[in-house]
Each structure stands twice: as C-alpha cells, then as structure tokens.
Design a protein around this nucleic acid. Sequence first.
DNA 1: ATGTATGCAGAATAATATTCTTTTAAAATT
DNA 2: AATTTTAAAAGAATATTATTCTGCATACAT
Lengths: 160, 160
Amino acid sequence: MATKLEFSLDQIDYQILRIMQENARTNNADIARELGMAPSAILERVKKLEQKQVILQYNAKINPDALDQKLLSFIFIKAQDPIGTQKVGLLLAKIPEVQEVHDIAGDDGYLVKVRTNDAAGLVDLMRNSLGKIEEIISTRTTIVLETVKEEQKLVIPTED
Amino acid sequence: MATKLEFSLDQIDYQILRIMQENARTNNADIARELGMAPSAILERVKKLEQKQVILQYNAKINPDALDQKLLSFIFIKAQDPIGTQKVGLLLAKIPEVQEVHDIAGDDGYLVKVRTNDAAGLVDLMRNSLGKIEEIISTRTTIVLETVKEEQKLVIPTED
DNA sequence: ATGTATGCAGAATAATATTCTTTTAAAATT
DNA sequence: AATTTTAAAAGAATATTATTCTGCATACAT
C-alpha cells in the first residue's frame, strides 16, 4: 500500500525544483537572485522540500565511459516470487551493477537495467549474480547499441 | 564512431566521485576533510572532472509522486529510420515525458522510458506525440507496477 | 476581532568558495 | 647525475554563501 502524503507545492516550489533539476549545485544565493527573494527564504523552502521528500537526493551524473562501463543492457526476468512479495526484486536490487529494478505487469516479471564494462562483464553478472537466484525462471536480454537520451527530469507543472 | 577520450583518473578522483555520487551537494570543505586534503586541491580536481566530462551534471532527484507522475512505462518502438540515422530517436528524445531513449539491438527498435500522470496521460502521449512520428511501425508498452530500485550510480573501481 | 501559524525580508555571524603564492615531488631533458 | 619543467597540493587571504535569528506582514481559524 502506497503511503498517502500531502505535498502541496506552489509556483515558487516549482521554480526551485526546475532550477535544481537543471543543476543541483546551484547555490541558495543564485536561486534567491533568480527568483527575487531572500536567501533565507530559499533555504527554508529547500529544507522543507527535502523533509517532505519532494527532493529525494542530489546526485552527480558520471560519464560511464570514464569508468569504462560501456555496455548498457536491459534484462527481462521471469521469476516465481512468493505471492505478494518481491523477494527476487530485492535480491536484484542488491547487485551493484543493477541500476533499476521494475516490477512489471504481465508475466510475473521484472525489468532490470544493468551497466557493465563489456559483454564479458554482463555474462559474468548473469552467471554469478543472477545464477544464484533460484526463483528466476528465465531471462531475456536486450543490448543497448546507443543511448540517445538518458535523464530523470520530470515535467514540472506550469500552473497549479 | 565513439570519440576516444583520455580520462586517467586516480584513486583520489574515485573517492571524490564516490562522495559526489552519494550526495552531489557535499561541499568542498567536507570533501577536503574526509580526504585529508586542502579545499583548494579538491576544488581543482572537481573542476577538472567537470572539464574532462567525467562529471556530466548534477541533478536533483525529485519524487515523481510529488508531481503526480504516478505512471512509469517502457515502450518498445519499432521504426524504419533512414539507414545510419536515428531520426526517430531524436524525435522521441524531444518529448518531455520521455526520460530515456535507447537504440537497441535486434529489430530496428528503440526502448523508451516514459513518465506520465496516469494511464490517460500515457494514451495522450501515444496518440499526440508518438502518433505524429510517421516512421514508427509498431509499439509495445510495458507498465511498471512498482519500482524496487532506480538509481544511476555507477560501480566505482577500488584499485586502478 | 483576536490569536496562531506561516512565510519572507533583513541583518549579523559562521562557514565555504575561490584565488593566489609557495612548496614539493615527480617526470622529462640534457 | 644535474637541471628544467610540470603537475599537484598546502596555506593564507579575500570574496561569497550559508545559516541563524528577529521582526513584520499576511493568511487562517476560532
């Protein structure tokens, strides 16, 4: 059951989110200047956005090539989880190379996004990490040839 | 053809990346303290990491629920691009609700990650945005019921 | 109307960012 | 081996920001 939270954001919050989404290291003073407000007011709002879990975290997007992680793959995994649990999903989530685990509609399956150095690394991962999860029935792997876009930016409303 | 770049990172760079990946708003002073170095030295390194495109950007991860974006979907799109181009991919990338576009091996296809408010929003997007791209032959949509993990953290080497 | 809460501005202080100079160490050259 | 060159870091000084606190104004509720 999803927890129902009250967010209630106004137009100023949206503007802050817009700025932060573009560059999470924009400082309070700059945001304040851009919005024509006092830095202290911005600080308060940002803290509240963090508390309210509107802003979940700040991360640096690192170039995968710089760390020699040249292969991106998506793996569909069919598994027989005990009903109502996501045991397999949680096990998958623990694998460091696994960036995303989504429980998908349809065939008792997960969609997993994985980054490895190369094909050998992917084989390794499938053998050593996935291979250890007994509940997995089958997998289907899709290799990414080239990524055209990869962001997590959300569409921020203009009016509320 | 991928551009061959020289990165050449050392152990200190990795530590900085590790910290930044956890919290991109960690300030120089804190990083300096943690690594036992002078703040000015950290500043230099961070700037170099940015210049070298090792750090691509800093972003705030915003809670999709806070913006009422409750539906996540993956869409496989078959398209007949002019050979050697990714015209369709670029058009897809322009759609704001589209967070990722990957050119995948196999059937002249793209894998697209989309976030909308709800099912109606997805239908809208398919009709209004995808519907306008004539080169699209077919689509297959997968709905995400629940996301277990969603990060973009890379595995950072321990030794170099 | 009156009390309460919220959000913001503004000022003061603490902390950080940034620049610059000097030192050190490691390569590179001769 | 001595010398030059380069890159990286420390340390100090200054510029900017972050943060805290106070007071005010507005909205809201009673």
